[in-house]
Every structure is written in C-alpha cells, then in structure tokens.
Write a protein that binds this DNA or RNA. Sequence first.
DNA 1: ATGGCTTACAAAGTAAGA
Length: 273
Amino acid sequence: MKFTLATWNINSVRIRLQHIKRFVGKYRPDILCLQEIKCANESFPIEYFRALGFSHIELNGQAAYHGVATLSRLPMTRVAARDFNGSGHARHLAVRLGAPDSQSVVLHNFYVPAGGDVPDVKANPKFAQKLAYLQAMERWCKKQTNKQNIRAILVGDLNIAPLESDVWSHKQLLRVVSHTPVEVAHLDAVRQAHDWVDVMRQHIPPEEKLFTWWSYRARDFRKSNRGRRLDHVWVTPALRNAAVSLRVADEVRGWKRPSDHAPVVTNFDLKRS
DNA sequence: ATGGCTTACAAAGTAAGA
C-alpha cells in the first residue's frame, strides 16, 4: 500500500479552509492529520472535507482550544481518543488504516501541550502538565507488548524541538519552553520506550537546520528564520523503511494569513517495510 | 524585541499559543 500522509497544526480549521483546499490541491494527501482545530465536533466543517475527497473523517474536538482530526480518502476505523494526562483536553486520536489484520497500521495523531511560558514545574502548572503528559505517553509505550511487530505511525505537534539543529539558536532557546533539556529528555524517553524512529531525521541529516514552526511575531519569517521543529513523524521499527520521501511544505507558511505551523508531508510505501 | 501576532468567544478584553 502506498499513500501520502500530511500532518499540520492548522490553528483553527474553520478559518483555514481556503488554505486546506490549496494545500490538498498541491500535495494530494491521502491522509491528513490536523491539530488545534479549535472547534467542537459538531462545528467541524465535515461537508467541506467530504467535497475535497476525504470520505473517512474521525474527530476529537472541543470548543475553542486544542482538538485533533484525522481525514482520509482510504478506509480507516477509529481505535481510540486518549486523555493521557487527565486534563480533559482533546489531544489524541488513533485510527486503524485497513482491515484489522497483520498488515494494518495504527496511526496516532497527537497535540502535546505547549507548556506555557516559564520552564518551571513549581511556578507554572502548564509546564508540569506538559511533562506529565509526556510521562503518560512513555508509560503507555512501555505497556505495549510485542513491540518489534507493531505497525504504527505517530505524527503531530509534539511541541518539543529535540535537536540543536531543530531550533534557530540552541544557546538562546535552552531556557525557552519547547527546547529545555528536561523536555527533550522526556521526549527522548517516549521515543525510546517504543523504539520510535524519527522519520524526518531519517530523510534530512541531523546536522541540517529543520523547522516546522515560525512565530507570528516576526515581520518576515523567512528573513528572520527563527524557527523550531515542533512537528514530528515517527514510525515503529516494523515500518523503519516505509517512508520513501518527506518534505516540510514551508511555502504554506508564507501564504496570506497562515497557520504558524507548516505541514509535513510524507510518502509511504508499506511494501518497503 | 524579556514579544512585535493570531485565534476563539453569550464580543470587549481575556486566555492561549510557544
């Protein structure tokens, strides 16, 4: 099975419909994982996506904040929508691609908490909640059995830029939430707990700068280029060779009134795994 | 630039993003 998968923190799905149409027209993704849809399930523009060809739609939304959606041209079934840290936030959705046999793949769509401003669990409850969320993800990963045979893809806005080359200035961001050593250690623990493979860094060397998010506050995001790699594509070892190509669609960040995140587009060929 | 912007919301200023 071959398919194109895109993950994109859309920062309000309802205000970004024209961008979605333009992006889908250009990249023809078979599966689209959105984060920060910022609407309840009943407010999600389902018909708009059906008209774009996404006949399979699974939602985990809430009013105003957070929320994730997975849209597909290919058959899929809902597996779970977990609340990893008991916050009541809509931040996760899992679907199964294909019939539930040994060749099917589970796709996880995540929106990890941003964590607020101050990287101190005592002074900032949001930072504590972010670390708790990552610990719950790690526990869940550890609990899985027969991990070498699990066929799974994990994508989304993980809100952490782990490598020095994942931020515009390692030194200046060491005490900025998203790149602090404690967050990076927590994310590494999640990854190692399931031997997840960092697909973006399989395709783009770790020495090379790679960003998926640029602040709205820069006058010219390309000129200042103070970006971070907050969005990720991971696969289990069984799918280690399944991603044939990948790119960050950073031109989308330059469209008028964009999301502050760019989509990440991956082409999969499951025969290669 | 220690935030210059953007979004949602029983709509004017809050809260949140990161």
